[in-house]
Design a protein around this nucleic acid. Structure first.
Lengths: 242, 242
DNA sequence: CGAGCCGTTGAGGGGATTCAAGCTCAGTGG
DNA sequence: CCACTGAGCTTGAATCCCCTCAACGGCTCG
């Protein structure tokens, strides 16, 4: 994990400007802050980068920091009593990670980088302090909690029910929402798909091969595909009839 | 749906006393309020009762009220694009229902009574007003959001993965947490179990019969069982070995 | 008493798993 | 340079678990 302090004590608030100019600020927790708020926080936020597979934090650990995801995809996973891991949610650009520390609770899941990832590390006390003075920030927090809840419930109804083919098509649809500007979509490893959909990696592999043959996806490199949107919709339609 | 106004305008705050004496107040959203807060809210809260199968609200509807569950079990369900319904979460005593209206958002799921249910109906503007003056209430709200999120994720990892027998055992374990004082546990209909676990009702029926033969559960009446806790734990242990 | 709902159980088929083999590719060390 | 290794992916064959289709019984209710 590489940590870059974004602030410099010798110049007046350069990071406040960096925050103000940040491409995800409007989508992020601090989108609600004004210039004064940015001045207040800038000196306490570090930028963090993580390589795929690296762990941001582990379930059960007590931490004092939360994160805003600027770039990349982070997965939340937990280990079941059977001993196998289950991926329960994904976070993308602008999402808040580890908000439970605001309640002085341990992290609920492992958080692991799926792709190269850039985050802002935010001390919990910073949010505590601002929340008292900034009602808009409190509202932003609640919006994010509700969004996480709806994501989780949508995962349950879309990705955890029905035949394997439909679940995997739905996963592609969800991953497409995190596509880069040029249409590149991150494709998880086969065993990661398994952990997301409760499938064996062999089944995931068979289906991905099938989708390639059908032209629903096109492999760009080992970890990225281009998705034929209409073909995907059609395949899902067929799946849902009957 | 029967609505009983709990307040009376001719006597001074009788409902404030009713709220203060309420058995679930300490577990409920307003557990954080002092006497002044209770005085403020009492005139605006109605008591509601619902019979099993009755709908509290529907997904997508815009409402201006949320609910605290005083007694009974409420399920959250949604209809997938395939047309079948999926139960994604359960609420029990003290849980908050429909909190998304505080964000001016439509209800995310259908909310349906599983058992006879008693709720307090709380206008959203009431919470808005109090939240500004009562930081503890804001915190209570966040705690409830986080709890709902963790419930949903736990549902995903426990009830939506693994073989049918394990999923149903896990469901019994979860239902046991909502047991009455005398140990009576609500047993859903077979097709409700199916909607919770993504099984056919036939499979649910076969497994329930099996559990009865094995002595894990004992049928009290059509909708209630007594659960042999140790036997359940043993069965789960066996399931998780191997 | 027939109709309908809910639950149970059986028989057969299908979809996902399990077990197994072989493939590519990156990294390592002789 | 290339054999060696291990991780990840693919594909095949056999098995098994759950679904589908079906029949039947108990119960409530009109």
């Amino acid at each position: 994990m590489s940590i870059i302090p974004l602030y410099r004590v010798d110049t007046p608030h350069p990071q406040a400007q960096a925050c103000a100019a940040c491409s995800v600020r409007k989508r992020s927790l601090f989108g609600a802050l004004d210039q004064a708020g940015l001045d207040y926080i800038h000196a306490h936020i570090d930028s963090i980068q993580l390589q795929p597979g690296k762990t941001l934090f582990e379930a059960g650990a007590r931490g004092a920091v939360l994160y805003t995801l600027r770039e990349g995809i982070v997965r939340f996973e937990r280990v079941t009593e059977r001993g196998d891991r289950r991926i329960v949610r994904l976070a993308g650009r602008g999402d808040l990670i580890g908000q439970e520390v605001l309640l002085r609770r341990p992290y609920a899941d492992d958080a692991v980088a799926c792709t190269p990832v850039q985050l802002c590390r935010i001390p919990a006390h910073l949010v505590d302090g601002l929340a008292g003075q900034t009602p808009a920030l409190v509202r932003e927090l609640m919006v994010r909690w509700q969004r996480a809840l709806e994501d989780s419930e949508a995962w349950l109804s879309d990705l955890a029910a029905g035949p394997a083919r439909r679940r995997l098509l739905k996963l592609l649809q969800k991953l497409a929402a995190h596509a880069a500007a040029d249409g590149r979509v991150w494709l998880p490893q086969r065993d990661e798909m398994g952990a997301m959909l409760d499938l064996t990696f062999e089944t995931a592999s068979r289906l991905i091969s099938q989708f390639k043959r059908e032209g629903v996806i096109e492999l760009l490199d080992l970890r990225h595909v281009r998705i034929d949107g209409p073909a995907l919709q059609r395949a899902l339609r067929v799946e849902d009839e009957r």
